[in-house]
Design a protein around this nucleic acid. Structure first.
Length: 614
RNA sequence: GCCACGGUAGCUCAGCAGGGAGAGCGCUUGCUUGGUAAGCAAGCGGUCGCGGGUUCAAAUCCCGCCCGUGGCUCCA
């Protein structure tokens, strides 16, 4: 709603002509003296809360300027995002009746062309404009969330549930850090997270000042890593049985179904002005997929039914202070799979299967169960009814789990798990997650037909099998930091290393030979043909975390073998050098990358041809 | 969004009780043609984050804004 408030000696108006939207009005016009005129545009999405706020504002001003009465004057020209006429009239009437409780008030008719004369008093407060918006129902939603009470437990692998203060954390240091972080959310550190330095130095990614905060640019090496992860994660979901789809990135903010969802979750949306409508940018793929499912004809025979999308991007306008490197962004890429199932029994079976899938996906990416901690969030009711099921989950990884129990359900789900990575600064961030949603099938009108021909509401599972791809990269880089601290050499898994093999000629004379060898290696391989010393080139390759460094000179040519420095077996003190044939090297790399997608090098093969991006 | 600290060459940073804009790395050129973690030399390179103010004079002092990091908060 937009308001223009003018404190006037008088206003005089005369109705001229009806528009199509006009409300009934018998008189010719009116003259009101010593009045605060509230020129008002009712906008799309305005509701009772807006009325309350607007009335509060108008009364405030009226009292401050000592006006004797108020006139509500519908004035469309203050906004380009007007509400429909019916809503506008009802809102204006509501304002009138609310103000009438405290103040003398009149209202000019809606939908007429009117002539008016007005004498503005001209004192400092005599002309004011206001824009009244509601943060959806954010305040209410936040208040509701605060009311939900959490109880913290540790679920032991044998299935025993222990109150957190009675759990002995000896031998579970990481879980202790995580639990502490979750419950207290306090931590004083004075360091830049390790991955931020790595992502810049390795030319993976960097901040882009010309964009909004939390939007990142990816250099060729970063794009390559990200692309491989995206392909891998997508393949795993499709292999699991999901149908890949693609849905829009922006949605109507006032779409009846979506609006209810937005109100329920006080998100921080990016808002986009359309020609006629106002849009928000998606924060997950739920909307598009749910809308697609609500139009689908689904039989119980089709269930469980899974659809999947890799969102590039999802947008969340997180608070400035929350944004850090690749850990939390305002635009991120997330695998988002939704599964609809017949009933809670099937939901639990799927939940367990997707839990196992998430473990497997992270493990193949290079993130082991020892690298993360499991959290389960569950309503008290669900826990009480499904104790054995939760014990079964606890057995999968055989390690204790942090369990948060809510006395009532506030979110749309009754059960959720997350895998949380604890980084070098003891900060925890969620990777994989699955939730059992008992609310959105109803909201979106998603149905299936059961064996008796009756329409039923399914239960929906939300699954992000790896969590945001950017966050996976963050976890891999932070994990590399741990390696560095333990005296080993930091590196990425071979299948994700932008350059897998570097061939270095001992001198200019062996350049062509080096290129020839490089062409026989089946991997992402490049050749350091720069005019630098051998030492320098070895050092540079090492600084780039290249898994295999091959040196070519007289000796290698004579022997017909390669001198290979293997990073994963070297330490900061000593390099592991092995003589092997090209075939042996190829075989080794092949086995390390088995089952993972491969992308060719998308940088010039010769280092002399390659720019430095920073 | 709030509080604190930071932003100087492509990168990492020094200079900051006001008065010549610097170093190392990188880049270019020349010498060097090497055997497993930085060969030598010269040169190029800067609206000192942006905007305003104070001053004879501002990278340096003051105000506002932007970006980053930590904390608060938050994380559908």
């Amino acid at each position: 709603m937009r308001l223009l408030l003018i404190h006037a000696d008088y206003i005089e108006y005369e109705v001229k002509e009806k528009t199509k939207l006009a409300e009934d009005f018998e008189e010719k016009g009116d003259r009101v003296e010593e009045v605060l005129v509230a020129f008002t545009s009712v906008e799309k999405g305005d509701n009772e809360e807006v009325v309350t706020k607007a009335v509060g504002d108008i009364l405030d001003v009226a009292k401050k300027v000592d006006a004797k009465r108020i006139l509500i004057y519908p004035y469309a020209h203050l906004s380009s995002n007007l509400a429909d006429a019916e809503t506008a009239v009802s809102i204006l009437k509501k304002m009138e009746s609310e103000i009438a409780k405290e103040f003398e008030v009149k209202r000019a008719p809606f939908g007429w062309y009117k002539a008016f004369k007005l004498s503005c008093k001209g004192h400092p407060l005599s002309e004011l404009s206001r824009e009244i918006t509601v943060e959806m129902d954010v305040t209410k939603a936040l208040a509701d969330e605060k009311k939900v009470r959490s109880y913290w437990f540790i679920l032991k692998p044998e299935g025993e549930l222990v109150e957190i203060e009675n759990f002995n954390f000896e031998g579970y240091e990481n879980l202790k850090k995580f639990a502490k972080y979750e419950m207290e959310k306090r931590r004083a550190v004075d360091a830049i997270p390790a991955h931020v330095e790595f992502m810049k130095r390795l030319e993976i990614a960097d901040y882009e000042k010309a964009s909004d905060s939390g939007h990142i640019k990816y250099y060729p090496k970063g794009r390559l890593i990200k692309s491989l992860l995206e392909r891998f994660i997508t393949e795993k979901c499709v292999e699991y049985g999901a149908m890949e789809v693609e849905t829009p990135i922006v949605y109507d903010r006032n779409h009846p179904t979506l609006r209810k969802y937005l109100e329920r979750f006080p998100a921080r949306q990016y808002i986009l002005e359309g020609d006629k409508r106002e849009f928000f940018m998606r924060f997950a793929a739920c909307f598009g997929q749910f809308l697609m499912l609500s139009d689908a004809t689904i039989s119980y025979k089709n269930l469980p039914l899974r659809i999947y999308e890799l969102t590039r991007y999802s947008f969340r306008k997180e608070q400035r202070g929350e944004l850090v490197g690749l850990r939390r962004l305002r635009a991120f890429t997330m695998p988002d799979m939704h599964t609809i199932v017949v009933d809670m029994d099937q939901a639990m079976k799927e939940f367990l299967a997707q839990y196992r899938l998430s473990v497997e996906v992270l493990r193949e990416i290079g993130i082991e169960p020892s690298d993360y901690e499991v959290a389960i969030r569950v309503t008290k009711d669900f826990y009480t009814q499904n104790r054995e099921f939760l014990q079964e989950i606890a057995r999968v990884l055989g390690k204790p789990i942090l369990l948060e129990m809510w006395d009532e359900r506030f979110f749309y789900f009754v059960l959720k798990f997350e895998f949380n990575f604890v980084d070098s600064l003891d900060k925890a961030s969620a990777l994989s997650t699955v939730q059992i949603d008992v609310e959105n099938a109803e909201r979106y009108g998603i149905e299936f037909v059961d064996a008796n021909g009756e329409r039923k509401r399914p239960i929906i599972l939300h699954c992000s099998v790896s969590g945001a791809v950017e966050r996976v990269i963050y976890a891999l880089l932070e994990k590399a930091k741990f390696k560095l601290e333990s005296g080993k050499l930091p590196m990425l898994p071979v299948w994700l290393s932008p350059i897998q093999v570097r061939v270095i000629p001992v001198s200019e004379r062996f350049r062509d030979k080096a290129i020839e060898v490089a062409d026989k290696i089946k991997a992402r391989v490049d050749v350091d043909d720069r005019d630098e010393t051998l030492n320098k080139k070895i050092r540079d390759a090492s600084m780039e975390w290249i898994p295999y460094i091959v040196v070519i000179g007289e000796k290698e040519i004579e022997e017909g073998k390669l001198s290979v420095t293997i990073r994963s077996e070297s330490t900061q003190k000593e390099q592991k050098k092995v003589m092997m044939t090209i075939e042996e090297l190829n075989e080794r790399i092949k086995s390390e990358c088995n089952g993972k997608p491969f992308a060719r090098l998308h940088l010039p093969k010769l280092l002399s041809m390659r720019p430095s991006f920073r």
